[in-house]
Design a protein around this nucleic acid. Structure first.
Length: 755
DNA sequence: TCGTCTCCT
């Protein structure tokens, strides 16, 4: 083995080449610029592991892997486990190294490097269903690039992975100064000078593509969690494919390395996608990595259950009585209502348990819950001999991990949003989950030890499930996706490479809609307006409202920014009032009255933001007194700051507005009209007229819509309404509703706004 | 007279 030893001695306090970050481990051995000197000393065809230890000794090296069988051999695994561990020279280093070696990916490190050597520019890494992956990246040390981007679907993932990697590498993670690791997410950018690794959200990479279509600052892009199939990741893979199979002139001939990481990948689909046109086979290299999941025993029901709610509660008590403690239960339900109902049933039944029987503590967990209320689900039960039951929505499937869980109960359903292009509306209905979703839920029982998963459906029903969920791009309005492509130079949308291509009709609707917003010219090319819309972190119709508000005739941009900030900060900002105390309820309703405007929800949002921003004393108390979401209002302030900044940069705003708090003045009726007419510019297609039978009928499509009870206009009759959202749940609902004048609609019909 | 999965620029 001597001949394979590294000839370089290193005295760095840690091995910077392999990084473990929570679920993943990434090796950057021998490829990044600080180690470039090493690359020069070695023929590039035989890169060598950088395995030096803290005390400066070298580790035994593995043999070079050129031309070896890509499959992992038992010998290889054995070799790894036999590697001599070195004693720590510096405190805390060896446990970290040990932890790395214990990772499943460790055994594959040479294969990963070999797979990316020479002409092989793309590699797909698949691991078994729900466990961690680790990937090594080889990036060329030539001119273009120098940085590795790692995309994540969620902000928290990007930031926490970055700080973990920075710690592993012993490099600071700051916005200024030197450092090897950085991250970039909305509202938060920490990319030190000389950063080599940058974690970023998918949306951020798409924004960067706007300025740099060839991703020149990167040598490699690692796309993580591709199996989640967000619209953004689908678009990113499309752009990456175009860069990969282009003549690379835009990168000075230097290829871009691409690593795709996936949990439950449809390998053939991804392989096929990255195949160049007319090529006989895909050049993509595949590496499968075994996970580290504890075994989970799966139990189906014998017969279909007639009442899921009842079966769920029964199953929970069944587990409680027959399974040992400790071991918490995680149950997947479809929504808040089901969760609350189940909680009531469980708590009622729990009260009847004998005093010597261990108790159950129920924690609801869903997105609309305040942060404090969510915390309960992550804490162990506070009293002894108590089992925790977390009743969760899909939030617990991918977004968060509940510790302590050994038992999962899966109802087999989830609420799914589906956009219907023909109707221009979306629906949100409970549907059967996919196999991969069922597997993901099951895996939640095996994170801390062997577990059990109880499915409230038969094994036959499981076999009938779709393999995977419909990717988001087939469920969403493609308006944003089409604008994203157009703004990045894709004129022929239909020939853009996508793993799943939406219905041509949906694309056509989106093109017409964009034309109605003046984002596209009649020949389909992007307009200046369209380019501006692509810069805003809001959907195209909202962007159009911003531009309309900036015109001298309207002159209400700051107000429109306030409204859009509130609307896009999340779901509704008004919490439902949950109190048994009538006088308290009256007080809350009274306090809310000063926010509500009879013109409708848009003006109500404006008033809320303005009064909130004018509040100088205690904003949290202000929110609580009105049951306004603290989280959403904080987010709204961030969005407001960002939108104001973009508007100043784009010269839509002449000066930066003065800082808060500013005194509150209610908007005059004339200015309120002007503001609503700006929204008409973006939402001319979402209007309805009052019919003789007192129903509202949409101007486009002639559908009956009802004003949603969450609107301040619920139960009121106005000659015409404009609504910003149109959702089918129990029935056809208009949400975020404002009263308008019927002649505004007529005027809007005269223009290009109504296709 | 409603009751809504989850992310992201």
């Amino acid at each position: 083995m001597d001949q394979h030893r590294s000839k370089r001695r290193k005295t760095k306090r840690n091995d910077p080449s392999v990084v473990k970050i929570g679920d993943k481990t990434i090796s950057l051995s021998a490829f990044l610029a600080p180690l470039a000197e090493k690359a020069e000393k070695k023929p590039s065809s035989t890169p060598v592991e950088n395995g030096s230890t803290p005390n400066g000794e070298e580790e035994e090296q593995q043999k070079p892997t050129d031309g070896i069988d890509k499959r992992v051999s038992k010998e290889r695994l054995k070799n790894d486990s036999n590697r001599p561990e070195k004693r720590a020279g510096g405190a805390g280093d060896t446990p970290m190294l040990k932890a790395r070696k214990a990772l499943p990916i460790w055994a594959y490190r040479d294969e990963i490097k070999a797979s990316l050597r020479g002409d092989n520019d793309i590699l797909l890494v698949v691991e078994s269903w729900c466990r961690k992956k680790k990937v090594r990246v080889q990036s060329d040390v030539v001119g273009v690039g120098g940085m590795v981007a790692i995309t994540q679907p969620r902000r928290v993932a990007a930031t926490t992975l970055a700080s973990r990697v920075a710690r592993e590498m012993g490099t600071p993670l700051g916005a200024t100064g030197e450092g090897s690791v950085g991250y970039s997410v909305r509202f938060d950018h920490k990319v030190p000078k000389g950063a080599k690794i940058k974690f970023l959200t998918e949306g951020m990479l798409l924004q960067e593509l706007l300025r740099d279509p060839n991703l020149r600052q990167y040598s490699a892009i690692i796309v993580d969690e591709i199996h989640e199939r967000s619209v953004d990741v689908d678009l990113i893979t499309g752009f990456l494919k175009q860069i990969l199979w282009s003549d690379k002139a835009g990168r000075g001939g230097i290829p871009l390395k691409v690593v795709i990481m996936s949990a439950t990948a449809d390998v053939e689909k991804i392989k096929d996608f990255f195949k160049p046109d007319n090529a006989p086979s895909s050049p993509l290299k595949l590496l499968q990595i075994k996970g580290r999941q504890f075994p989970v025993e799966i139990k189906h029901t014998d017969k279909p259950v007639p009442d899921i709610q009842e079966a769920l509660v029964k199953k929970i008590f069944d587990i409680h009585q027959h399974e040992p403690l400790p071991g918490d239960i995680l149950a997947f339900l479809t929504g808040q209502e089901e969760i609350e109902a189940a909680q009531r049933l469980i708590e009622e039944h729990c009260a009847t348990l004998a005093s010597n029987v261990p108790k159950l503590h129920v924690s609801p967990l869903y997105g609309q819950l305040s942060i404090q209320a969510q915390q309960d689900a992550f804490q162990p039960a506070k009293t002894k001999y108590t089992r925790k039951v977390v009743l969760a929505t899909n939030i617990a499937e991918t977004s968060v991990t509940v510790p302590g869980v050994r038992y999962v109960v899966d109802c087999g359903k989830a609420k799914v949003k589906q956009f219907r292009a023909r109707l221009g509306m979306e629906s949100l209905l409970a549907k059967a989950i996919s196999k991969s979703s069922a597997i993901q839920r099951t895996g939640r029982a095996g994170r801390e030890g062997p577990g059990k998963c109880f499915r409230l459906y038969t094994s036959e029903a499981y076999e009938e499930l779709q393999d995977a969920d419909l990717p988001e791009i087939l469920r969403n309005d493609v308006l944003g996706a089409v604008l994203t492509m157009k703004a990045r130079g894709i004129n022929d949308i239909l020939s853009f490479p996508l793993m799943d291509f939406p219905d041509v009709e949906a694309v056509e609707k989106a093109l017409i809609h964009l034309y109605g917003l003046s984002a596209l010219a009649a020949d389909g090319t992007i307009t200046e307006i369209g380019r501006k819309l692509a810069l805003f972190p809001v959907s195209a119709p909202y962007g159009r409202v911003l531009l309309a508000a900036a015109s001298p005739e309207s002159d209400c941009l700051l107000e429109v920014i306030d409204v859009i900030s509130v609307i896009t900060s999340g779901e509704t900002i008004f919490h439902q009032i949950q109190t048994e105390d009538d006088s308290e309820r009256d007080a809350i309703e009274e306090a809310r009255k000063e926010l509500q405007r009879r013109e409708g929800d848009i003006l109500t949002f404006l008033t809320t933001m303005q009064r909130y921003a004018a509040e100088n004393a205690d904003r949290i108390a202000w929110c609580y007194a009105r049951r306004v979401s603290v989280r959403n209002m904080r987010q709204a302030l961030n969005i407001r700051r960002q939108l104001r900044g973009i508007c100043v940069k784009e010269k839509l705003l002449a000066v930066t507005p003065p800082p808060d708090p500013q005194p509150f003045y209610p908007l005059s009726p004339e200015r309120a009209d002007a503001l609503l007419r700006c929204f008409m510019r973006g939402f001319a297609t979402k209007t309805a007229l009052l019919a003789p039978d007192s129903s509202y009928v949409t101007v486009q499509g002639k559908h009956v819509v009802a004003i949603h009870p969450s609107s301040v206009l619920h139960g009121q009759k106005k000659e015409a309404i404009m609504f910003l959202e149109h959702v089918f749940t129990q029935k056809n609902y208009a949400k975020k509703v404002s009263a308008i004048r019927a002649d505004w609609i007529v005027q809007a019909m005269g223009g290009a706004a109504v296709p």
